[in-house]
Design a protein around this nucleic acid. Structure first.
Lengths: 150, 150
DNA sequence: TGCATTTAGTTTAACATCAAACTATATAGT
DNA sequence: ACTATATAGTTTGATGTTAAACTAAATGCA
């Protein structure tokens, strides 16, 4: 008998692999991306492009699973580079609205383009058809952790 | 036609889920663990327990996929708490050897014990039998990224 | 209306990480 | 032996993150 049941071992291994994968892929992406762009910055631009802009900083921070302090920081960098436009929300004096600029869209597209070669190289060894079946499980796990966070 | 091929979309989604999962699970673990213990510290103790101690800091840093500077930091914390013992390597004047202490083993066990309830709760909704099939893929992806890092 | 509470965003302090510079020791080539 | 190079570990400076304190505005309720 081991101290940790076999099931717990599987879960430990799972989360351990997730952690290492996150670190390695994040580093690879940042290296590939245009100079000065970081993964959090790209994530925000990508989010605004895919899901529409005009969101408040707080709502974006929740969608990205970071604190609002971290989002303040990221948005200040993006605004400083002219990649987003931040305006006060007319309906709510406390809030702001974040819009992606044309330059922001261009940088977002450049980021994606810069990753494509890496993705292709990856897909050559580990095809998307192998990855796709794992996605529902990952999403389920992510939703569970998110809900459990209270 | 979209700008990014469907396959690239799947890979982007995959790595995005990995990143969020890593963040959420890491935060959940740190909250569950004994006061003052961090995930990196636990990882080192766990590594020394499972794979044997006497390793050099550099070798540990490589196994954990962090820089040696980060490992210096983590080991200093562990040594300060008396959880590891660091001695010069007799065979190599540049190197050191890291040993886990009895207190270190106790803390490592306590960390694992503190996570078991969370794991059980997780497993109640997402059983290990659902997780296990995804592990080979995650390991393959991790090994690929590690190898590609040059 | 007025006051307590909640919400949006910023700031601060602490900390982990990385890349790069640096010290010290070992190894290789001449 | 000597010198150049490689390796082990630490330190430094910058950055991104969190939790918590703080400011300002909105909401709820009496």
């Amino acid at each position: 008998m081991t101290k940790t049941p076999a099931d717990a071992d599987i879960l430990f291994t799972f989360f351990n692999e997730i952690g290492i994968l996150s670190q390695l892929s994040g580093a690879a992406f940042e290296k590939a991306m245009p100079e000065g762009m970081t993964l959090p910055q790209f994530s925000v631009l990508n989010h605004l492009t895919r899901l529409g802009d005009g969101w408040s900083p707080l709502r974006i921070s929740r969608a990205m699973q970071v604190t609002k302090g971290a989002m303040t920081n990221t948005l200040q960098h993006l605004e400083g580079k002219g990649l987003v436009d931040i305006r006060p929300d007319e309906k709510d004096g406390r809030a702001k609205q974040v819009f992606i600029t044309a330059a922001g869209r261009a940088v977002r597209d450049a980021c994606i383009a810069s990753m494509i070669p890496y993705m292709n190289k990856f897909a050559a060894d580990i095809p998307a058809t192998d990855i796709a079946p794992a996605l529902p499980l990952l999403q389920r796990a992510r939703e569970w952790l998110d809900k459990e966070r209270e």
